[in-house]
């Protein structure tokens, strides 16, 4: 019984997903502000990056995207460093890529997370950061703010490295823990989901 491609991509949009995204976004916003150490202008080594790992592994890439996008907007709202929607989009894309877990077989909900998945996950995190902050964010910066590219690249470089570190060093143990938590249901079959 395999879920269709689109369904895995979008996630199931029931009330549970909506609430999980909302709580994830709130946590992301608060952790961006209070749960980090500044390393460069407007850039932090932030624990907020754990949130898309959890949302992505349980609900899929698109919910992870929305979590990061809304979360970063909320962080800007209470952070007072101005509004940088280029970064919201960049963080969203990163969330999306981190949330791709089910596509290479790491089904956390069913307790499947093997070392090979951890390796793929680490590689996706690096590629994802490079793509999100090396390509998408500068593109958005030009589109929204027209310039400030030097700063964006420097910030992106610092932020990308910090994010990768958090995603890999804290993310992998969390994924293992989450997988172990739901492992007891591996030999059970899921009934057809009702929406």
């Amino acid at each position: 019984m395999k879920k269709s491609f689109l369904k895995t991509l979008l996630g199931v949009w029931n009330t549970k997903t909506v609430v999980a995204i909302a709580i994830g976004a709130a946590l992301f916003g608060v952790l961006m502000n209070f749960g980090g150490i500044p390393i460069y202008t407007n850039t932090r080594l932030t624990t907020a990056m754990i949130v898309p790992v959890i949302v992505g592994s349980m609900f899929g890439p698109v919910p992870a995207f929305i979590t990061c996008f809304v979360g970063n907007t909320i962080a800007d709202l209470i952070g007072g460093w101005g509004f940088w929607f280029d970064w919201s989009v960049g963080n969203g894309v990163l969330g999306f890529i981190v949330g791709l877990l089910p596509f290479y077989g790491a089904r956390i909900n069913e307790g499947i997370f093997k070392p090979v998945h951890a390796v793929i996950y680490a590689i996706t995190c690096i590629v994802g950061n490079a793509l999100a902050f090396g390509v998408v964010t500068p593109l958005m910066t030009v589109a929204f703010y027209g310039g400030e590219l030097t700063i964006t690249f420097l910030q992106a470089f610092a932020g990308g490295i910090a994010n990768t570190a958090v995603l890999v060093i804290i993310g992998i143990p969390i994924l293992y823990a989450l997988a172990r938590r739901s492992a007891h249901s591996t030999n059970l079959k899921m009934e057809e989901e009702k929406e």
Partner: peptide
């Protein structure tokens, strides 16, 4: 549903 996400997140802070 996106509106709900915003308001719940806001409410949850």
């Amino acid at each position: 549903k996106i509106c709900t996400i915003f308001s719940l997140a806001f409410r949850y802070i």
